[in-house]
Amino acid sequence: MGRIINSTEELEERTEITVRDLEGALVGFAVVVPDYDDHVGLCLGTQWHWVHPDHRGTVGRMILREIFKIARYHGYKTVAYTKRLGVGRYEINYKQLKEKTHG
């Protein structure tokens, strides 16, 4: 956990999202940063995203929705994040955000 804390604190510009249970225990978090990806250009990149195994599903979706809200608020059209496929295996995903329409 110390490695994650240190690498997060080194980021000049970041947004941290935390989710805690009723007792105050951390059950999920994410750290997002402005990023430039060769495939999609300027985007909001997910630096860290973790959810306790007992809270996966609801908490994971809650964090993703918040990441998308933050991205829209700051004018990003794309969110980049990784998905763990197995030990040492990850894939990069790109979520193209749709404009929210009111009316």
Rank of each mutant, 00 (worst) to 15 (best):
E66H: 05
Y81H: 12
M1N: 11
T78G: 03
T18P: 00
G28D: 02
Y76K: 02
D21N: 13
G57S: 09
V59C: 05
I67Q: 10
D38W: 15
K100T: 14
R72P: 01
H52C: 03
R89W: 10
M1H: 08
V31I: 09
H102W: 12
K83Y: 11
T8L: 01
E10M: 11
K98V: 12
R65L: 07
I17T: 02
T82S: 14
T18G: 02
Y90N: 13
H55A: 06
K83D: 12
V87G: 15
L26V: 00
K98I: 08
G60K: 02
I5H: 03
T82P: 06
P53A: 05
D35W: 08
H55N: 09
G86F: 09
D35S: 08
T18N: 04
E16W: 00
N93E: 13
D38V: 15
W48Y: 15
K83W: 10
Q96K: 14
H55D: 07
E99W: 02
S7M: 08
Y94K: 06
A80V: 14
M1A: 10
E23H: 06
Y90A: 10
G88K: 14
L11S: 00
W50D: 02
V31R: 00
I70E: 03
E10H: 06
F68I: 10
W50K: 07
F29G: 04
K83H: 12
L64D: 15
Y81D: 08
G103F: 03
Y94A: 05
M62A: 09
I63K: 04
G24P: 02
Y36S: 14
R56W: 03
Y94H: 14
Q96P: 08
A80M: 13
P53D: 09
T101Y: 14
N6T: 08
V51R: 04
A71M: 05
